[in-house]
Amino acid sequence: MNEARVMGVSKRFGEVVALHRIDLHIGKGEFVALLGPSGCGKTTLLRLLAGFESPSSGEIWLNQELVADQDRRMPPEQRRIGMVFQSFALWPHLTVYDNVAFPLRHQQHVPEEYKQNPRARVAQMLEMVGLGGMEKRYPSQLSGGQKQRVALARAIVFNPTLLLMDEPLSSLDAELRIQMRKEIQHIHRELGTSIVYVTHDQSEALAMADKIIVMRGGRIEQAGTPHEIYYEPQSPFVAKFVGRANFVKGSWADSSTFLLERKGQTSLPVRVSQDLTPFQREQVLPVRPDQIRLHPWHDGQDGVKGRVQHVQFQGRELLYSIQVGEEEWEVSTDIATRFAYGDQVAVELVV
C-alpha cells in the first residue's frame, strides 16, 4: 500500500520536548516536504520514521503495520526505508558498485530478482541517476554532485516503501542544487516511491513537493499544497517563512473584503479570493511582493499613493521598496515595469 501514518507522536529528550503530538499522513507516491527553521523538529521526525529513535508517545505505522510506539521499535533495516543524508555517507573504501549494492545484501524485504542479479539492478539505478559506467570508481574520485547521485542510487536500489531525504542538497552549489532537484523529481516520477524530504529552503519545498508541512517549535504550523502554503498562509509565521510577505494594515469589512486606508481619502476595498481568516483578528492583509502592481502616479489616480525608496535589479525581475504612508512594502515586478528612486507611484493590490 506504500503509505505511512504518524499518530499523536511526541518526542522528549530529557526535559526538552522536540515534538508535540504530531499527526501526519504520507500517501502512496506522495512527495512530502518538511519545512521549517533549525530546531523545529523536522529531522527528529525523520529519524523517528527511519527507526533511529523511538517516540515518547504516539504511534508510527508503515503499510498498516505498527513499527513504533513508546514500548517497541522496529529497527531500520526491517522497515524497507531508503535514506539520503546531507553528508552523502558513502563508504570510502568501497567502489561505487559496492556502495550501491550494499542494501541488496543487508536490507530485509529485498525483491528476489534484485538479489539474484544485483549487477543488473545496480547498473539500472546508476543509469537512472546519470552515472552509468562508473561502477569501479571510488568516492574520492567523484565530485560532490556525483557522490550525492551515488547516495541516491543506494537509497532506491532495493525499491523502498518510503524514501527519506535529510537536506540532501544543502552542501551543493546553487547550480548543482537546481540540477539535482530535477533528478530527484525524475526518480520520483519513475519509481512512484513516497518521499519525505527535510529542508529549510522554502524554494526547494515549493518547487518539488506535492504537500508541504511547515513546522515550528516541534509543532505543525500548517500543512497543504505549495499553492495553499504560499497564497493561503494560516499564520504570520508561515506567511513570512515561505516567501516574503507584506502585512498591510487596514480593516476587514467581511471575510472577502479588506479595506485599505488611504490618507485623506475614503478606504479602498480590496477583494480577497483566498481564505485568510486567521489574519482578520490582526486587522492585516498578507500580500506577496508579486501580488502588487505599480503604475505611474497622477492626480485622481485610483489606488494607493507610494514613493520608490529602493530599486534592485535581479535579472528577470525588479525588487522595489515602496513607502506607503508609514509602511514600507516589498514589491517585485517584471523588467518592463521601471521606476527610479523617488518616483511617485500608484500601488494596486491583486490578491
Results as ranks from 00 to 15, higher is better:
residue 325 G to P: 00
residue 275 D to T: 01
residue 263 K to I: 13
residue 247 F to A: 10
residue 261 E to Y: 06
residue 295 H to S: 04
residue 273 S to M: 04
residue 282 E to C: 00
residue 281 R to N: 13
residue 323 Q to S: 10
residue 257 T to Q: 07
residue 330 E to L: 15
residue 333 T to C: 12
residue 298 H to D: 04
residue 346 A to H: 00
residue 275 D to G: 02
residue 321 S to E: 14
residue 327 E to F: 02
residue 287 V to C: 13
residue 303 G to C: 04
residue 252 W to H: 03
residue 284 V to N: 03
residue 298 H to L: 05
residue 346 A to Q: 11
residue 328 E to M: 03
residue 306 G to E: 01
residue 309 Q to D: 11
residue 339 F to A: 07
residue 285 L to P: 02
residue 267 S to D: 12
residue 326 E to P: 01
residue 253 A to P: 01
residue 266 T to D: 13
residue 272 V to C: 09
residue 264 G to T: 04
residue 314 Q to E: 14
residue 308 V to H: 06
residue 267 S to E: 11
residue 317 E to G: 05
residue 302 D to S: 10
residue 282 E to R: 11
residue 286 P to L: 09
residue 333 T to D: 08
residue 289 P to F: 08
residue 272 V to I: 15
residue 307 R to E: 15
residue 248 V to D: 02
residue 293 R to D: 14
residue 256 S to W: 00
residue 270 V to Y: 01
residue 277 T to A: 11
residue 322 I to S: 11
residue 328 E to P: 00
residue 345 V to K: 05
residue 326 E to K: 09
residue 336 A to K: 10
residue 273 S to L: 10
residue 266 T to P: 06
residue 286 P to M: 06
residue 318 L to Y: 09
residue 271 R to Y: 05
residue 293 R to H: 14
residue 253 A to S: 14
residue 310 H to Q: 12
residue 284 V to H: 03
residue 252 W to E: 06
residue 323 Q to R: 15
residue 276 L to P: 06
residue 323 Q to D: 09
residue 240 K to L: 11
residue 303 G to A: 06
residue 329 W to Y: 07
residue 257 T to M: 01
residue 305 K to R: 14
residue 254 D to K: 07
residue 241 F to G: 07
residue 277 T to H: 06
residue 346 A to Y: 02
residue 314 Q to T: 05
residue 317 E to V: 08
residue 263 K to P: 03
residue 341 Y to C: 00
residue 318 L to Q: 13
residue 312 Q to L: 12
residue 274 Q to P: 00
residue 266 T to A: 14
residue 289 P to K: 12
